[in-house]
Amino acid sequence: MSPPIDSAARLVELIRRKAPEYLDLLTASTDEEFDAAFEALLGPAIAHLETNKLNYMELDEEGLSAVLCASLSIPGLAVSQEKHSNGHVDLTIEAEHCVPVRRKLGEAKIYNGPVYHIGGLVQLLQRYATGREGRGILIAYVRKKNIAGLLAKIREQMNAELPCDQQGETTDHLHKWSFLSKHAHHSGVHLQVSHVGCNLFVERGSSTT
């Protein structure tokens, strides 16, 4: 049996060693710090989908997002599907017991070309986002070959068209097959969006055994 934790300082140190991302989320004092802490959780959650893709071959967007929600959920971070914000949002991430409230909205699409992806961006920014949220998320579940090239095409088209009042060209993201965009929102603020690719391509004839 573990010895009792006899002080708040010792508890914090234990959390720092065992779950630093959790502590970073709890102690984030700015949107930038919260975004950085969340991205540290998102990477492994996306990797989990990719390394178990054979088990998820039959899942649709909603099913894949359910797995993603489960992977992201930790104490202090509420991750919900189909929560209402001027419509049913694919992903809603909220830091509990946080003032001001830190909230992120996300859309998730099985890749079907740049136009379909940009349609998800329109939903996220022009329908669901109120302007109070932090950086949005747009997940692309890619079941086709060459995710690197496909995400590059999305990025190229967005840079050419500047959808949703995009402010300049997209920028690199810390995750592979991902990028960031910034948009002027109708609320008068600029909102960033993380576009994150998830490689779910399966070679024909692959087996789960």
Rank of each mutant, 00 (worst) to 15 (best):
R102V: 08
R103F: 05
H88W: 04
Y111C: 03
Q126S: 12
A95C: 14
E82A: 14
E82Q: 15
G87P: 05
G134F: 00
L77D: 10
V79D: 08
V101F: 12
L124P: 09
E107W: 03
E94P: 04
V89S: 06
I93P: 06
I137P: 01
A70S: 10
V89N: 07
A108N: 05
L138T: 03
L124V: 02
N112L: 01
L72A: 12
C69H: 11
G120R: 11
I110L: 08
R103E: 02
Q126W: 05
L138Q: 11
K83L: 12
L91V: 07
R102E: 06
G63P: 13
R103H: 08
R132W: 09
E133R: 14
L68Y: 10
L124G: 05
H117W: 06
V115F: 05
L91F: 00
R102Q: 13
Y128C: 03
G76Y: 12
I93A: 02
G76Q: 10
L77V: 15
C98L: 00
G119R: 00
E107R: 10
Q81S: 13
V67P: 09
A70W: 05
E133V: 12
G134N: 09
V79F: 06
G63S: 11
Y116R: 10
L91Q: 02
I118D: 13
G120V: 05
Y111D: 01
C69E: 15
Y111R: 04
H97C: 11
G87E: 02
P100K: 13
Q81D: 01
P75S: 14
G87V: 05
S73T: 15
G106E: 01
P100S: 13
L72S: 09
V122K: 02
L68W: 09
R103D: 00
I110R: 14
T130V: 02
I110V: 14
V89K: 04
G120L: 06
H88M: 01
L138W: 01
H117V: 04
A108L: 02
D90H: 02
E107A: 02
V89Y: 01
L68R: 05
L124R: 09
V89H: 05
V99A: 15
R135P: 07
N86C: 08
L77G: 10
V67T: 11
G87S: 04
P114K: 12
G113L: 10
H117P: 00
H88V: 03
T92I: 03
L124I: 02
G106S: 06
K83G: 02
Y116D: 06
E94D: 12
L72T: 13
Q126C: 12
V115Q: 13
C69Q: 15
I110Y: 03
A129I: 01
V89Q: 07
L64R: 05
I74V: 15
A108C: 11
H84N: 07
H88L: 09
G120N: 08
S73H: 07
N86E: 11
P114F: 00
G136Q: 07
L125Q: 07
A66W: 03
L121W: 03
Y116Q: 07
A129Q: 10
H84E: 08
A70N: 05
G113E: 09
I137W: 11
I74C: 06
R135I: 03
P114W: 03
G76H: 12
L105I: 08
L125M: 08
L64M: 07
G63N: 10
A95H: 12
A78Q: 15
A70L: 08
P100F: 14
L121E: 01
I93L: 15
C98H: 12
